[in-house]
Design a protein around this nucleic acid. Structure first.
Lengths: 352, 352
DNA sequence: TATATTTACGGGTACGTACCCGGAACCACA
DNA sequence: TGTGGTTCCGGGTACGTACCCGTAAATATA
C-alpha cells in the first residue's frame, strides 16, 4: 500500500554506490575509507539529513554505556545528599532502558582519602562519563585533570570549579542565593538593624560560603541601608557547641533581628532559639528542605528555607551527561538552579 | 571468553520448551495458546524475572506511538501557555528518539467550538494517549467520556476534572496556592486591614478561581485576624476596563493594603497603580512569570508572582503518558506542582 | 470414519545499525 | 615481474523482539 520513503544507512549506501559497511565507517569516522569516497558519502548524508536510528544503533552495539557518580554519602550530617541521590536513581532507572548503567561512588566529607580512593576506582572501572561533587578542591582538580587526559566528560554537581573543562556545572547560583536571603530579611522587618550570618561547619568550603555571604551583604549595600551584619563561625556541628556560641553571641548583641544560616543546619539555631526565650524571636533563614529543618519550618521557628531543587540537580546531572554522550546534544557550561523559597505554607508541595 | 548469561525470549522459549512465537503470544497475551502452555511459559517468565528489551521491542515493532496534546493556543492574552508548550516540545524531542510522536492541537478560550472540533480531529487521528487542558468543562467531560470508551488514556494539565478517570492530573494545588498568596500579604505588612482580590477574565472558570479565593481567605481566618477582603470581578481584559473598575474600587476604598490578582494579568493592575499615584502603594501579588509581569516585578510594582513551573507541567504531562504507555509505569492520580514564589531577586534563575 | 473447521504452535524473516572477516586493488621495492 | 604489505571496500551475520505464514493437532461436523 504505502511505500516507505527509504532512509537510513541502506539508502545512503545505495545512493552513494557503496556498501553499508563503508557508510558505517564514514559515520563513525573510522579509518579505511578513501578521501574521495568519504566525501561522496558525506554529501549524501547531508542531502538526506540523516539521523541515526537510536534504537537500532543501541541494539546492534551491544555495548552498555557506564556513568559514574561521585558524591558524599548520605549521613545525618549530610542529609542534603539524599535528594540528589534520589534524582540520580530516578535518572538511572529511566535510562537503564536505553542501555546505560549508572554506578554510584560515595565518600565522606571529613577526610579526603576516601574521595581519592573512589576516583581511582572510577578510573579503573573505565567509565564513559562522570558526575561529581568537587567537595575537596585540590583533589578534585587533580582527578578532573586525569579525566580530561582520558577524554572522559564530567559534570560538576552542587559546587563548581569554574575554570575546569567540565561539560557543565549544575547547582545553585551562590551569590544571588545569598542576595535572596537578604531580601527575605527585609520581608517581615521593614528596617532591620542587626543581622547575623551563622556558619556551622567543620570544614569551611571557603568559596561557597564566601559567595553566599557576598550576595547577602550586597543586598543591603544595594539598598544603601545602614545595617550591622555580624558573622559567627561555628566549627563544630553538635548542638552543645552551637548553643555555646550563640549564647555568647546573644549576650553581646541581644537585639538581633534576623539570623541567616548559610547551610542546612538552621535547625540547630532553631532549637537554640526555642530554648532561649528571647524577648523577640529573630527571623531565621536557612538552607535546604531536610528533616530537622522541615520540623522547625512547620512550627514557625524557621521562617524561610532557601532551596535549589536538589533532587532535580541529581536527575539533571545524569541526564545531561547521557544526552551529551548518546545524542551529542549541546550542553551549556552552567545550569543554575532556581532559588526556591520554602515556607510553612508551600512546603507540602515541595517535592525534594 | 565470557559467556553471556542467556536471557530474553529465546531463553524463555528454550526453558519452556516452546517456540519464541509462543512466548511472544503469552507476553502480549494474545490468543492461540492453550491454558497449559500459557501457564508453563508464565512460570518461566516469573522465574527469570524477565524484562523485555525496550530497544529491540521498539525496533522490531515498527509502530510509532502517537500522543496528542490539546491546549490553548499561545496569544498575547494567553501567554501563559507558551511555557507548557516549550516543555511539551522538549519532551517531544526527547522521546522522538524512542519512536514516539507528539502532535499538538490548539484551541482558543473564547469559543468552545474549536475545542470540540479539535477533539474530533484527535479521535479521527487515532492516537495512543492524550494530554489536555479541560478548559471547557462540559465539552471536556464529553470528550474524555469517549476516550474512556476507546480506552485511550488521558492526562489533565493545569486544571482538573477530579472525578474523571484520568491517568493523572498535573497542575497547581489551587487552594494552597491561594493560601500562600495570603501569607505573602502578611510578609511585609504586619497587620493588613484592607485586602482586595481581583479577577480579570472574560470567562470565569468558576472552579479554579473559587479554590484560589477559598485558600486566600482561609489563610486569614486560620490566623483569626479581622481583615476585610473585597472582591472585584472585571470581565474585560483591556486596560481601559481594568482602569475604570479599579478607579471605582479605590474611590470607595482608598486604603487598600494589598491586591491579589488571581491569574496572570497582574501587570494590568501594576500599570494602574503606577499611574494612580496613591499615597501608599499596596502590595501586589499575581500569578505567572509572563513578560508583562516580569517587567513590573523587576520594577518593584509587583511584589510577588506565584508560579507553578509551567514548563515542567508540559514536560511532565507528556512524559507521564509516555512512561505509562511504554513501560506501564504506575502513575499517581494527582501530581501537584510546587508553589514557587518569584521575586525581583530570584527571577533571573526562574527557568520558565 | 472421513472431512471440514478451529485451535495451537513452530519456522523464519524483518527492523536498522555495528562490526567481523575476507578479498580486491594498489603501491613499493627488489 | 614477482613478492609482500597497505589501503580500501563489500558481504554477511548478529542484536532481541514482533509478527506473518504455514502446518500439525485437536475438535467439530457429516
Amino acid at each position: 500500500m504505502k511505500k516507505k520513503s527509504p532512509t537510513g544507512v541502506k539508502e545512503i549506501a545505495r545512493r552513494a554506490n557503496v556498501a553499508i559497511a563503508t557508510v558505517d565507517r564514514v559515520i563513525h569516522n573510522r579509518t579505511g575509507v578513501s578521501a574521495k569516497t568519504r566525501e561522496k558519502v558525506n554529501k549524501v548524508i547531508a542531502e538526506l539529513d540523516y539521523q541515526p536510528n537510536f534504537l537500532a544503533s543501541r541494539l546492534a552495539s551491544g555495548k552498555i554505556i557506564t556513568l559514574a557518580v561521585l558524591i558524599p554519602s548520605v549521613t545525618k550530617e549530610t542529609e542534603f545528599w539524599d535528594a540528589p541521590l534520589r534524582g540520580i536513581q530516578r535518572a538511572e532507572q529511566e535510562i537503564s532502558q536505553y542501555g546505560v548503567k549508572v554506578e554510584s561512588y560515595f565518600f565522606n566529607l571529613i577526610d579526603p582519602q576516601p574521595f581519592i580512593d573512589q576516583t581511582i576506582r572510577i578510573l579503573k572501572a573505565g567509565v564513559d562519563g562522570i558526575v561529581l561533587s568537587p567537595s575537596f578542591i585540590s583533589e578534585a582538580e587533580q582527578f578532573v585533570a586525569q579525566c580530561e587526559k582520558l577524554k572522559i566528560p564530567f559534570v560538576f554537581i552542587d559546587s563548581n570549579l569554574p575554570d575546569r573543562p567540565s561539560l557543565s556545572y549544575i547547582g545553585p547560583p551562590l551569590f544571588q542565593s545569598g542576595y535572596q536571603a537578604g531580601r527575605l530579611c527585609t520581608c517581615t522587618l521593614s528596617a532591620p538593624a542587626q543581622l547575623a550570618i551563622v556558619n556551622i561547619t567543620k570544614a569551611l568550603d571557603s568559596y561557597t560560603y564566601k559567595q553566599i555571604e557576598k550576595g547577602f551583604r550586597a543586598y543591603f549595600s544595594d539598598r544603601g541601608e545602614d545595617v550591622s551584619i555580624l558573622r559567627e563561625d561555628i566549627r563544630k556541628t553538635d548542638f552543645a557547641s552551637v548553643e555555646k556560641s550563640l549564647r555568647k553571641l546573644f549576650a553581646a548583641h541581644p537585639a538581633i533581628d534576623a539570623i541567616f544560616v548559610t547551610n542546612s543546619r538552621a535547625s540547630l539555631v532553631a532549637r537554640f532559639l526555642e530554648d532561649a526565650a528571647l524577648p523577640a524571636k529573630p527571623i531565621l533563614i536557612g538552607y535546604d528542605f531536610v528533616k530537622d529543618n522541615k520540623y522547625y519550618l512547620a512550627k514557625g521557628t524557621i521562617d524561610f528555607l532557601i532551596c535549589h531543587q536538589p533532587e532535580d540537580q541529581g536527575y539533571r546531572s545524569v541526564m545531561t551527561l547521557y544526552q551529551s554522550l548518546v545524542f551529542s546534544s549541546k550542553i551549556s557550561k552552567e545550569y543554575y538552579m532556581p532559588i526556591d523559597i520554602v515556607t510553612r505554607e508551600n512546603q507540602a508541595y515541595y517535592h525534594n
